[in-house]
């Protein structure tokens, strides 16, 4: 009897190890790679998208990013963010975005999967083939056992996260293009945008558009309670998904993992969180205040606890 039990337990452990720790084939989907936050610019142009270097997922490749899904995710992200007026097919727009995936580095085994992605982003003006932007975008995303127990799902989440961050950074680079902005102003018959006379002063409260762009650029944030004493700061990682959901990982909290939803109220210049089953960080709406070039504070509009965090410059 005990031999039979031992055999069964061994079998279950083997299956658990294989399923839980290995990363099998699972396709990264366009929905999960979507960047939903509004862009800081709205160019009055049409754009087409082409993607290269992607790989079809198979049993031998593991989870990958296919050209088709990546293209659809970039197109949907542009439409949702309203970065360009419209998305057209076949290179017939005013501009063309080319995304070339050159590296997708994945582990094959482990509890946490960190996937690194490198892609070249190019923006070309179709009428005269002028290359407006060429940029390497590198991104990485770690999926842990908190994200999924099954290895195949965890790997897919890591791949999708890396791709989503890559898309967010690529579109942000395009949104930051002064040349394209000047082009648009010139075509509208407007004078060039004035150069800001003074540098940013802190603290400054971010506008609704700025908040959306900010969180699109920083989908993973290491935050803490606004307390002077380190023991009361309760640091946590805030992960912002493209579909409006958020997750927080707080190793020192009573409930280490939690999820919820996030909405940017553009007109009110607020970001609102609704956490399920956890009191910290507080559910509610916050103003986002930048206190230095790299430091931010989420200040509750009610009695919510202040949250501090820093970002890379």
């Amino acid at each position: 009897m005990s031999t039979t039990l031992y055999g069964r337990v061994t079998g279950i452990l083997i299956v658990t190890a294989v399923v839980g720790l290995s990363g099998c084939a699972s396709t990264a989907t366009r929905e999960a790679m979507l960047v939903g936050a509004p862009a800081t610019k709205n160019y009055p142009y049409s754009v087409s998208v082409q993607t290269r270097g992607g790989t079809e997922t198979s049993a031998t490749t593991g989870s990958t990013v296919s050209n088709e899904e990546l293209k659809a995710a970039v197109e949907s992200s542009i439409m949702q963010s309203k970065l360009f007026k419209s998305v057209v097919q076949g290179g017939t727009g005013d501009y063309e975005i080319t995304v070339i995936v050159t590296q997708l580095t994945k582990p094959v085994f482990g509890a946490s999967f960190t996937v690194e992605m490198e892609a070249g982003w190019a923006l070309t003006k179709v009428s005269d083939k002028t290359v407006v932007l060429r940029k390497v975008v590198k991104s990485a995303h770690t999926a842990t056992l908190d994200d999924a127990i099954v290895g195949a799902t965890r790997m897919r989440i890591a791949v999708e996260g890396a791709a989503r961050k890559n898309i967010a950074q690529g579109l942000q680079a395009i949104a930051d293009l002064g040349a394209l902005d000047a082009d648009a102003r010139s075509e509208r018959g407007q004078a060039p945008a004035p150069t800001p006379a003074t540098a940013l002063t802190y603290p400054r409260t971010l506008s609704g558009q700025d908040i959306a762009a900010h969180f699109a650029s920083y989908p993973s944030i290491e935050a803490r309670r606004g307390e002077a004493m380190p023991t009361r700061q309760a640091p946590f990682t805030l992960r912002i998904r493209g579909d409006g959901t958020v997750e927080r990982s707080c190793p020192r909290c009573f409930t280490p993992s939690a999820s919820g939803s996030m909405v940017v109220k553009q007109d009110d210049a607020q970001v609102c969180f609704d956490w399920r089953r956890v009191p910290y960080p507080a559910s509610g709406c916050f103003k986002l205040v930048q206190t230095s070039a790299t430091d931010f504070q989420m200040r509750g509009v009610g009695f919510e606890t202040v949250i501090n965090y820093s970002v890379a410059p």
Binding site: I100, T102, A122, R134, K135
Partner: peptide, 10 residues
């Protein structure tokens, strides 16, 4: 590209 590491071909 030697300037910004942009992948011209891979």
């Amino acid at each position: 590209d030697p300037g910004n590491e942009y992948p011209l071909a891979s």
